[in-house]
Design a protein around this nucleic acid. Structure first.
Length: 275
DNA sequence: AAGTGGAGCAACCGCCAGAGC
DNA sequence: GGCTCTGGCGGTTGCTCCACT
């Protein structure tokens, strides 16, 4: 391809936001011819876009199985856990969140998690912040998941709990029965309406304001977080039950809460198989 | 009502690895 | 072996919306 041709092609290329017509064209073309060979696909479809741009638009937005909407509590927990294992391997993390794209998870991490690291005045990659995620935020997310499950799907919980009593399995939310904080959350879920927060910030700042000097009190679990590959939140203790109750009484509604505990158990098993 | 700043997110950029020639 | 093309990935940018003043 000579330089004149390159320049003409470059000048023809469209950038920026996609129009409805472009989306329609891309969807139709893929429906007929399938994915792949993105550069030639862009040319054949008559789209004045790079192959990369078409691929990105399809994968992140137009694909039929892309899930839109808020990241659920379960997804947040999974993202935190997987990121603790793999770091910024967004595509790998996305493989374990059906319908979520690497871009979406990356954006979530940058806008929510990194924001809180900034508020804590610590580096997102620092041990302090990682420990805060592991020993403070993730257990609380798990508690919220159980609380919402308790109120929304008692049958599922009962089944799972029985199973755990019999087999002594530790899964993310059922093990929390073992500590006192769960007593608080369980009672709360029975007595008052419990609805999940949609963001870790509710767990960490609204009712648990912490600063850099509080790490010594907050990082209370020296025993590790994962046992036999399964999540284990039993080490969490809450110093402030009153705040805990306030935290449990969040009012935000998560209507797209699609997973239950058995799904989480299944996912955990899948993850363990991967490792 | 207008201006401003921050949050959220879609899209782009640059780099890299693998495949094909 | 070297070159080109392509796709994938993580990092970054810039636009839009919204809350606040």
């Amino acid at each position: 391809m000579d330089m004149q041709h390159v320049n003409e092609d470059h000048m023809d290329l469209k950038r920026g936001s996609w129009t409805v017509e472009e989306d329609f064209t891309l969807i139709n073309h893929i429906a007929i011819h399938g994915e792949g060979r993105w550069n030639s696909l862009a040319r054949c479809a008559g789209l004045k876009r790079t192959g990369k741009s078409c691929r990105l638009r399809w994968l992140n937005y137009l694909r039929p199985d892309v899930r839109r909407g808020n990241i659920t509590l379960e997804e947040q927990l999974l993202i935190l856990e997987l990121h603790s294992r793999w770091g910024n391997r967004w595509s790998k993390i996305a493989q374990h969140l059906p319908g979520r794209t690497d871009n979406e998870i990356k954006n979530y991490w940058r806008t929510r998690v990194q924001k809180h690291a900034k508020q804590l005045k610590c580096d997102v990659n620092s041990k302090q912040f990682k420990d805060t995620l592991r020993y403070l935020w993730m257990p609380r997310l798990a508690e919220r998941i159980q609380a919402s499950s308790n109120s929304a799907a008692t049958t599922t919980i009962t089944t799972t709990n029985n199973s755990n009593n019999n087999n002594n399995n530790h899964v993310s939310t059922s093990v929390t029965q073992e500590n006192s904080s769960v007593t608080a959350s369980s009672e709360n879920s029975m007595g008052t309406q419990v609805s999940p927060v949609s963001d870790i910030s509710d767990c960490c700042y609204n009712n648990y304001p912490i600063n850099q000097n509080d790490y010594g009190e907050l990082l209370i679990s020296p025993t590790g977080y994962f046992q036999n590959g399964a999540l284990d939140f039993r080490t969490v203790d809450y110093n402030n039950q009153q705040n805990m109750s306030q935290w449990m009484e969040g009012t935000e509604d998560v209507s797209d809460n699609l997973w239950n505990i058995e799904d989480m158990l299944f996912l955990q098993q899948q993850l363990n198989n991967d490792v």
